[in-house]
Design a binder for these strands. Structure first.
Lengths: 189, 189
DNA sequence: GCAACTCAGATGACAATGTCAAGTGAACCG
DNA sequence: CGGTTCACTTGACATTGTCATCTGAGTTGC
């Protein structure tokens, strides 16, 4: 049952869970190695048995968040009941919802993953590929999927980012993030 | 000459300059109150005579950066030689260039300025208004300036943000940030 | 022109944090 | 069962933000 390897794997998972929870609850400043260890039921130095440093722990959290988005996209891709255009719309609004529900984790996902975080880079790349597949399914032209997908992804990210930073207020711009997403799809999708 | 008030104002300016330089050169981690003080020629505790805490110092740097962008926009607005559409294009590409030249300061500008940073909030609001004026000058319809402006601003921000985080690569998306800006203007401007 | 005052800045100190070296005890292996 | 490995703990240290206290030069009133 409690083999040493299993226990270590459970600890690693608990550390990632604890870090993600602390991030969601209190923002980046709340993610302290001591707090992470405490919530995971281990000591402050335990993370160093699983990650080289704090940055790598956070990169793993970011990778996990990307993979969660990737699973959402997978569910959309394999759901053949929906029309391609509807899948694309759901993919975009799903990303927006993630950004709203977990703003700090979202910020971490779109932070720069250094070259020494191959795990995070791979997770980002995989999910981007899934998104590109959804885009390509909507527009027949394969060559245009990349640029169109990039325009959609960057624009939606900009909407979410400015929403989360409080710089996209209805008073100033007379529009909501959801309105912008609709405008975007109408003009580009 | 060296009255006490002038000296204090010079110190405050030197602190802001030092913080901005350190940010540009070494990223957020390099902006240490001790380093800021050293570069400004004062001691580590000197910033507390001008700012309540480090966060307010950074907010002041962000406000300054927004004001620099605002001056660019002002120059565009008062330059009556250019057509309105060209002014809008220059405004957007100017923002992109700022994001590329000073990625860390750009990130700070689009970070969340808490409600206890009225100086930064005002600077953001002023510059956004200037941008909206440029947009309104292009499209006659006054009611649509807000939404269209928001779509342009958020989208360009998303492009710059993903460029700076290394997630907008030509290999993956077969497009560059400049291409995306052109696509955006063609479809929305 | 001088004494009292004000205030920008310097300095000492402290708590929190990331990080590492050394230690420990239980799982593992022969 | 005895030695070994390894995940984890603990003690320690450098760095950093922050504050209380101190100091000296600029300022003010006479």
């Amino acid at each position: 049952m409690s083999s040493r390897a299993d226990s270590a794997a459970a600890t690693r998972r608990a550390l990632l869970d604890a870090a993600a929870e602390l991030l969601d609850e209190g923002g980046p400043d709340a993610v302290t190695l001591r707090a992470v260890g405490a919530r995971a039921g281990v000591s402050r130095g335990a993370p160093y048995g699983h990650f080289p440093d704090k940055e790598h722990l956070l990169a793993a959290v970011a990778a996990r968040s990307w993979e969660a988005v990737g699973e959402q996209l997978d569910a959309l891709i394999t759901d053949r009941r929906r029309a391609p255009a509807e899948r694309l719309e759901q993919a975009l609004s799903g990303l927006m919802e993630t950004g709203r529900r977990r703003p700090y984790a979202y910020g971490l996902m779109f932070a720069a993953p250094g070259a020494d975080h191959p795990e995070a880079l791979a997770a980002v790349s995989r999910t981007h590929d899934q998104f590109l597949a959804i885009v390509a399914d909507v527009i027949g032209d394969k060559d245009r999927a990349g640029p169109i997908g990039a325009l959609l992804m960057t624009s939606v990210h900009g909407i979410v980012a400015m929403e989360n930073s409080g710089q996209l207020t209805a008073e100033k711009w007379h529009v909501t993030g959801d309105d912008l997403l609709r405008m975007l799809i109408a003009r580009i999708g």
